[in-house]
């Protein structure tokens, strides 16, 4: 275990661990609803939007976080609004948003001169980019998301299971949709620098898929998702430190391995 304490002796690793755990909690909580409502691709679309906003902000010498947060929140509302419109093709819109944002970000970086931008860091994440402001923002977000789940988990279940019924019994589903859009945006923007624009959405999807393998109730799925998400992040960060691999990719691969193992166990149980 010496290596673990050695890893934590670096302040940038401490910050990465804290932000990673806090973002993992938020991503797992919001992920359960997004995955079960078949809206998990929204996370992918928004992460690419965040990449575009980060790149443009850096080129224009703005504080990236303060441009990316409002841009991604606006994009999430737009996607949400158009997804609920039966005439609009939600999937196509998300694909359009992803590709356009990536193109804008890449173009902004390639046209800029004299600006030193770590493109790899944006796309695949970097533990070195996490500052104390990220730690505080993540902590505030995690507290808000946990409180939301404590006080509204019954309503969140009702909306996730059957939105039409939830509306019929008077639950203001559009308010919850808006809250989810904001949380999802913040999770992506705050987690993107750690895990990368191309990988952050996995933090939303994997924990739910893994916990669904061995949970038959919604409440347990939520709790297991959070636990799985935290363990897999710490495991991924540790492995990436030990073998000097990219953190984002390592966390995703740890999640993938756990998903495969739990799927096999479930399959064997049923056979």
């Amino acid at each position: 275990m010496n290596w673990f304490f050695e890893m934590l002796s670096y302040s940038f690793m401490q910050r990465a661990l804290i932000v990673g755990v806090l973002i993992s909690v938020c991503a797992a909580l919001v992920g359960v609803s997004l995955v079960l409502r078949k809206s998990s691709m929204i996370g992918d679309g928004l992460s690419h939007t965040a990449f575009g906003a980060f790149a443009v902000a850096t080129v224009l010498n703005f504080a990236p976080l303060w441009l990316a947060i409002p841009v991604v929140i606006v994009a999430s509302f737009l996607v949400l609004k158009l997804s609920s419109n039966k005439k609009a093709n939600g999937d196509a819109l998300i694909a359009l948003l992803s590709a356009s944002s990536l193109a804008i970000g890449t173009m902004a970086i390639s046209l800029s001169s004299g600006v030193n931008i770590d493109l790899n860091g944006y796309l695949f994440g970097s533990v070195l980019s996490i500052g104390w402001s990220d730690v505080w923002l993540s902590a505030v977000l995690a507290v808000a998301v946990i409180l939301l789940y404590i006080f509204a988990h019954n309503r969140i279940f009702a909306i996730t299971f059957d939105e039409d019924f939830a509306k019929a019994i008077g639950i203001k589903t559009h308010i919850y949709d808006a809250i989810f859009a904001v949380i999802c945006s913040l999770v992506i923007v705050l987690g993107m620098r750690l895990l990368g624009a191309l990988l952050i959405s996995s933090l939303i999807i994997f924990p739910t898929l893994i916990s669904m393998q061995f949970s038959k109730s919604f409440g347990r799925t939520v709790v297991y998702s959070v636990i799985v998400s935290i363990i897999n992040f710490i495991l991924g960060l540790s492995v990436s430190y030990l073998i000097a691999s990219p953190t984002g990719a390592t966390v995703v691969l740890v999640n993938l391995v756990v998903f495969i193992i739990t799927s096999i166990i479930r399959w064997l149980r049923r056979a």
Binding site: L36, K38, N154, R155, F157, A158, F161, D162, D164, F165, A166, A168, I169, I171, S211, M212, S215, K216, S217, F218, G219, R220, T221
Partner: peptide
């Protein structure tokens, strides 16, 4: 409703679903 468009593997117990009717 006519049909509930949930995931086939939606993790929910009967009691969770029926209780949500009282919300």
């Amino acid at each position: 409703p006519q049909d509930v468009k949930t995931d086939l593997n939606f993790p929910a117990t009967v009691s969770e679903i029926v209780l949500s009717g009282t919300l």
